[in-house]
Design a protein around this nucleic acid. Structure first.
Lengths: 223, 223, 223, 223
DNA sequence: TATGAATGAGGTTTCATTCAT
DNA sequence: CATGAATGAAACCTCATTCAT
């Protein structure tokens, strides 16, 4: 794969890094930024903080990123990196056994999604928030994230095409992605706050309910 | 309905309004605040702005609300008001006909929910955001909102109890509330931004997909 | 005694109280103000606080006292009241026995002074502070306080005139008053803070040192 | 003298000044602050005023001092500086002649102390006030001031040990420091205001009375 | 006359951004 | 180029004082 997510790829609002030294600076910045994103919300991260954490001067940050806004695309870059690392680690979880049913597979999927969520909630929160707040700044990483996941769901659906009732397989895969990325993320990030306050179940039951939802969506016939 | 949510009910962090004059001031403040909430995010509203919009001095705002935080509960007050106004207006939508099936009812429900969402997305956004960010400040309005909705879903489930496969009716009603308040709100507030970018369908199709999801969740049998 | 320190005597910046009702209001205000002065510094007392504590409205405070400054003279009024109450209570302490020496009397004096100080340090602090900060506002109460005390010391000096070496009895009495009101008040109010940090003695030893100072001042001959 | 109290030594609550430029800024700030302290009370000095007077922006003040509180230790820094400058200037005053008696020395001491007081009353007032109000913030400068002075008095006492009646030389030196720093400072700062109103003597007579007090304290025998 | 709501100047503090070194 | 000191607009909040009821 030639996906260009090498850490020094410049984004919108970024200043091109011509020299070797500046490439290293960018790496330092992105690494420190990623660490900070796991600790606190993007709004709460100050430029001075980022500079200090990166071991560079404030002015140097501005040499790479024209302003704070230019860091928003990097949120998604960091998010994508994390997903890729995790998906490598978790590939065993996701491997379907020969005798797995659609239900088994759906449940595995939901469990895996939950694991990811539990790992870096703050980061995911910022990514989800700024994907909504500044959709103009998401960059192509977000698309990559989506299409990667949708592809997975598509495989699942194709594999169990006889059980699945939805006529449009691609559309169904997209809806499943959407469902998990709203329903589960919501609970993973905010738990009992927000609409989650309505729920009176523990985590395993919630995950099963999510699986039921997805399974139901896929298998229910025309009403 | 005799619920005492008239506009002048004082909340946490508020200063009691004993006189008529100050009650009128509170109304001015809440009204202006509601208008601002429909225009911009809570964080972006400054105390000076609220004062000016209300036609009072800054100090007057602080006479009613101890600090900016004390305004957060008012977000939910405004939200609840809006929901009540809408539910009165929309009651015809929601009336079930005698020959309605579970599917028909579910679809009606989703359509009604969507209508609400389209009306005041910014307000709902702030409510959902601060219900997550500051769950300690939501007050009882948020509970009222939840329990009111859950009750509606419960009625639906009970009415079609022969079709519904979920053993725990109350739990199922809560999950349906949760589903709609994440899946639909997400799309209603952010549309193609965020996970919604995965979706490639128009609004009516999306609403139908939501209905399918809920319907599937309720009717699918043990896997 | 016809000293006019009846509680409703109007001072500079005050509004004359013509009616009975307003005289009662003044009493309420002065009482509440006295209580507050024992709790916190004058600067930290807000007009709203004084109003609430007095059980009247803010506007009513301004009907009696033109502004916050007009309350400063009342500090001394309260102080004087306190001294008079205490001196009545403590008269036994101060009674000289027939066989008392100058040293005995001096020590008794210092002990009594310390007792007063320990009772209402905050009030005394405000009185001393504002006597310095706003000497224009002290009124005649402060003079009364001084002359009353100086008189006491004068009696002492006259009684032991054979032991006392200072030629000017009145001047010496004034110096003794001054000594105690700086040396002891300092330690009574601030203890180890300020210059008191230099001292490494306990309270009884400090009181004795004060007595030694006064006694030394009175009895030392020409150098 | 090699004491490291050059103007750029950083104190509690301060941000370290690493560069030359920022050291110069700190000097500007401390100088302007010192000037302001001689003009008005610390409470009355606003951050904006300090910034303007220093010729820097408000933010710059906050870059050196985390908040207004962090300036309190600087009061004592300025005070100590002043004392050191003065003590250099006044060293001739203080030099004891061979044939000086204890009385002569005491009088010289009191005169020198008075000179200092007359120079910068406002500054000394702030120092004395905040040493009492915020003893937690005085820093070590205040201790230096005290121990330096106590040492001087100790020398005096030791030099005339045959005349001095106090058994504990160190304790006596501390009491003398305390006496002068209450009795004289009071008169120097507030003059006829406060307890000073009792005094009816001119300055030379007052100084002599102070000397008498100290001399009496040191030389009076057991009562 | 009493009330207490309303006023608004003024103070402290934060932080993205600029720019001299 | 990198540095980090300096900038200053803008936000929050307080409280003595005024004034409509």
């Amino acid at each position: 794969m030639e996906k260009s997510d090498d850490i020094s790829k410049p984004r919108r609002g970024e200043i091109e890094a011509s020299q070797d030294r500046s490439r290293r600076t960018r790496e330092k910045l992105v690494t420190a930024f990623g660490a900070l994103l796991r600790e606190k919300a993007f709004e709460a991260i100050t430029m001075a903080e980022l500079a200090e954490r990166s071991g560079v001067a404030v002015g140097t940050v501005y040499r790479r990123f024209a302003n704070k806004e230019a860091l928003i695309p990097v949120i998604f870059e960091v998010y994508l990196q994390m997903l890729q690392t995790q998906s490598t680690d978790n590939s065993r979880h996701m491997t379907l056994e020969d005798d797995d049913t659609l239900w088994d597979a759906t449940l595995k999927l939901c469990k895996a999604a939950w694991d990811v969520l539990e790992r870096d909630p703050q980061l995911i929160r910022s990514a989800h928030l700024y994907a909504r707040l500044r959709p103009d700044l998401v960059g192509e990483d977000w698309d990559d994230i989506i299409e990667g996941s949708v592809g997975q769901f598509r495989q699942l659906i194709d594999h169990f095409s006889d059980e699945v009732q939805r006529p449009d397989a691609d559309g169904a895969a997209r809806m499943v992605f959407y469902l998990l990325n709203t329903v589960m993320v919501e609970q993973g990030l905010y738990g009992d706050a927000g609409p989650g306050a309505a729920l009176k179940v523990d985590t395993p039951a919630f995950i099963e309910d999510c699986a039921t939802t997805v399974y139901g969506y896929l298998t229910v016939g025309e009403a």
